[in-house]
Protein backbone atom coordinates (compact mmCIF):
# COMPACT_ATOMS: atom_id res chain seq x y z
CA UNK A 1 0.00 0.00 0.00
CA UNK A 2 1.27 3.42 -0.88
CA UNK A 3 1.69 5.58 2.19
CA UNK A 4 -0.10 8.92 1.99
CA UNK A 5 0.75 11.82 4.26
CA UNK A 6 -1.54 14.70 4.99
CA UNK A 7 0.10 18.10 4.66
CA UNK A 8 -0.99 21.69 5.23
CA UNK A 9 0.84 24.22 3.12
CA UNK A 10 0.21 27.88 2.49
CA UNK A 11 1.10 28.79 -1.05
CA UNK A 12 0.90 32.41 -2.18
CA UNK A 13 -1.25 33.11 0.85
CA UNK A 14 -3.73 30.32 0.13
CA UNK A 15 -3.86 27.42 2.58
CA UNK A 16 -4.01 23.96 1.03
CA UNK A 17 -4.60 20.62 2.67
CA UNK A 18 -3.53 17.67 0.57
CA UNK A 19 -2.59 14.04 0.89
CA UNK A 20 0.64 13.18 -0.85
CA UNK A 21 2.98 10.30 -1.37
CA UNK A 22 6.18 10.92 0.63
CA UNK A 23 8.33 10.77 -2.49
CA UNK A 24 6.41 13.46 -4.32
CA UNK A 25 8.85 16.25 -5.11
CA UNK A 26 7.78 19.67 -3.97
CA UNK A 27 8.20 20.97 -7.53
CA UNK A 28 5.76 18.36 -8.82
CA UNK A 29 3.35 19.10 -5.98
CA UNK A 30 3.33 22.81 -6.82
CA UNK A 31 3.07 22.28 -10.56
CA UNK A 32 0.78 19.32 -10.89
CA UNK A 33 -1.18 19.05 -7.64
CA UNK A 34 -1.68 22.79 -7.16
CA UNK A 35 -1.54 23.59 -10.90
CA UNK A 36 0.83 26.49 -10.30
CA UNK A 37 2.85 25.84 -13.42
CA UNK A 38 4.86 29.05 -13.30
CA UNK A 39 7.51 27.15 -11.34
CA UNK A 40 9.57 25.22 -13.88
CA UNK A 41 11.68 22.11 -13.81
CA UNK A 42 14.92 21.99 -15.75
CA UNK A 43 17.16 19.44 -14.05
CA UNK A 44 15.73 17.89 -10.91
CA UNK A 45 19.09 17.79 -9.26
CA UNK A 46 19.43 21.22 -7.79
CA UNK A 47 21.70 22.90 -10.33
CA UNK A 48 19.65 24.95 -12.79
CA UNK A 49 17.44 26.94 -10.46
CA UNK A 50 14.36 26.91 -12.70
CA UNK A 51 12.35 25.49 -9.81
CA UNK A 52 13.35 28.17 -7.30
CA UNK A 53 10.59 29.23 -4.91
CA UNK A 54 10.46 31.05 -1.60
CA UNK A 55 10.17 28.71 1.36
CA UNK A 56 9.39 30.61 4.53
CA UNK A 57 10.71 33.65 2.73
CA UNK A 58 14.01 32.15 1.54
CA UNK A 59 14.80 31.10 -2.00
CA UNK A 60 15.25 27.32 -2.28
CA UNK A 61 15.13 24.61 -4.94
CA UNK A 62 11.75 22.90 -4.96
CA UNK A 63 13.05 19.95 -7.01
CA UNK A 64 15.24 18.69 -4.18
CA UNK A 65 12.63 18.87 -1.47
CA UNK A 66 9.76 16.52 -0.83
CA UNK A 67 6.27 17.95 -0.62
CA UNK A 68 5.95 16.41 2.86
CA UNK A 69 8.76 18.71 4.03
CA UNK A 70 6.52 21.68 3.29
CA UNK A 71 3.95 20.65 5.87
CA UNK A 72 3.26 23.66 8.08
CA UNK A 73 5.33 26.02 5.94
CA UNK A 74 4.73 28.99 3.70
CA UNK A 75 5.63 29.03 0.03
CA UNK A 76 5.66 31.76 -2.55
CA UNK A 77 5.91 31.05 -6.26
CA UNK A 78 6.23 33.36 -9.26
CA UNK A 79 2.45 33.63 -9.34
CA UNK A 80 2.66 35.62 -6.10
CA UNK A 81 4.49 38.51 -7.74
CA UNK A 82 2.33 40.21 -10.33
CA UNK A 83 -0.23 39.56 -13.03
CA UNK A 84 0.30 40.20 -16.74
CA UNK A 85 -1.72 43.40 -16.33
CA UNK A 86 0.03 44.52 -13.15
CA UNK A 87 3.57 43.32 -13.11
CA UNK A 88 5.76 43.50 -10.03
CA UNK A 89 8.54 46.12 -10.37
CA UNK A 90 11.05 43.31 -10.75
CA UNK A 91 9.02 41.80 -13.57
CA UNK A 92 8.69 45.21 -15.20
CA UNK A 93 12.44 45.60 -15.02
CA UNK A 94 12.91 42.21 -16.69
CA UNK A 95 10.65 43.29 -19.52
CA UNK A 96 12.22 46.70 -19.95
CA UNK A 97 15.76 45.31 -20.02
CA UNK A 98 14.94 42.33 -22.22
CA UNK A 99 16.13 40.00 -19.48
CA UNK A 100 14.17 37.04 -20.80
CA UNK A 101 13.98 35.24 -24.08
CA UNK A 102 12.40 31.80 -23.88
CA UNK A 103 11.39 32.64 -20.33
CA UNK A 104 11.82 29.13 -19.01
CA UNK A 105 14.43 30.17 -16.46
CA UNK A 106 12.69 33.42 -15.61
CA UNK A 107 10.44 32.41 -12.70
CA UNK A 108 13.43 30.88 -10.94
CA UNK A 109 15.45 34.04 -11.41
CA UNK A 110 12.60 36.19 -10.17
CA UNK A 111 12.27 34.18 -6.98
CA UNK A 112 16.01 34.24 -6.35
CA UNK A 113 16.12 37.96 -6.91
CA UNK A 114 13.10 38.98 -4.84
CA UNK A 115 14.73 37.20 -1.94
CA UNK A 116 18.09 38.79 -2.65
CA UNK A 117 16.83 42.34 -3.13
CA UNK A 118 14.96 42.05 0.14
CA UNK A 119 18.32 42.08 1.93
CA UNK A 120 20.47 43.97 -0.57
CA UNK A 121 18.96 47.22 -1.67
CA UNK A 122 21.73 48.56 -3.82
CA UNK A 123 23.97 45.78 -5.14
CA UNK A 124 26.91 46.22 -7.50
CA UNK A 125 27.14 44.40 -10.83
CA UNK A 126 29.52 41.88 -9.36
CA UNK A 127 27.32 41.21 -6.35
CA UNK A 128 24.36 40.71 -8.64
CA UNK A 129 26.26 38.19 -10.73
CA UNK A 130 27.14 36.29 -7.59
CA UNK A 131 23.55 36.41 -6.40
CA UNK A 132 22.19 34.94 -9.64
CA UNK A 133 25.04 32.51 -10.11
CA UNK A 134 22.93 29.58 -9.01
CA UNK A 135 20.36 30.14 -11.73
CA UNK A 136 21.06 28.97 -15.26
CA UNK A 137 19.90 30.80 -18.33
CA UNK A 138 20.72 29.51 -21.79
CA UNK A 139 19.31 32.40 -23.79
CA UNK A 140 20.34 35.76 -22.42
CA UNK A 141 24.00 35.50 -21.49
CA UNK A 142 22.89 37.00 -18.14
CA UNK A 143 23.93 40.54 -18.97
CA UNK A 144 20.43 41.89 -19.37
CA UNK A 145 19.39 40.09 -16.21
CA UNK A 146 22.08 41.97 -14.32
CA UNK A 147 20.76 45.19 -15.83
CA UNK A 148 17.23 44.26 -14.85
CA UNK A 149 18.22 43.61 -11.26
CA UNK A 150 19.82 47.04 -11.04
CA UNK A 151 16.73 48.64 -12.48
CA UNK A 152 14.49 46.64 -10.19
CA UNK A 153 16.49 47.74 -7.15
CA UNK A 154 15.84 51.34 -8.17
CA UNK A 155 12.18 50.73 -8.85
CA UNK A 156 11.69 48.90 -5.59
CA UNK A 157 13.42 51.65 -3.65
CA UNK A 158 11.08 54.15 -5.28
CA UNK A 159 8.07 52.02 -4.36
CA UNK A 160 8.96 51.64 -0.70
Amino acid sequence: MTQLVKINVTVNGVPYEREVEPRLLLSDFIRHDLKLTGTHVGCEHGLCGACTILFDGQSVRSCIMFAVMADGHKIETVESLGTPEHLHPLQEAFMEKHALQCGFCTPGFLMTIVDYLGDNKNPTDEEIREAIDGNYCRCTGYENIVEAVKLAAKKMAAHS
Partner: peptide, 21 residues
Protein backbone atom coordinates in the same frame (compact mmCIF):
# COMPACT_ATOMS: atom_id res chain seq x y z
CA UNK B 1 10.23 47.54 -29.00
CA UNK B 2 9.43 45.70 -25.76
CA UNK B 3 8.18 42.20 -26.25
CA UNK B 4 4.52 41.32 -26.62
CA UNK B 5 5.04 37.95 -25.00
CA UNK B 6 6.77 39.11 -21.82
CA UNK B 7 3.93 39.94 -19.41
CA UNK B 8 2.42 36.49 -19.75
CA UNK B 9 5.77 34.74 -19.31
CA UNK B 10 6.84 36.95 -16.42
CA UNK B 11 3.66 36.30 -14.53
CA UNK B 12 4.19 32.55 -14.80
CA UNK B 13 1.14 32.25 -17.01
CA UNK B 14 2.76 31.07 -20.22
CA UNK B 15 1.98 27.46 -21.02
CA UNK B 16 5.03 25.30 -21.64
CA UNK B 17 4.86 21.68 -22.62
CA UNK B 18 4.92 20.07 -19.20
CA UNK B 19 2.20 22.47 -18.05
CA UNK B 20 -0.33 20.76 -20.30
CA UNK B 21 -2.73 18.48 -18.46
Amino acid sequence: ILRNEDPQILAGKAQYLDDIE
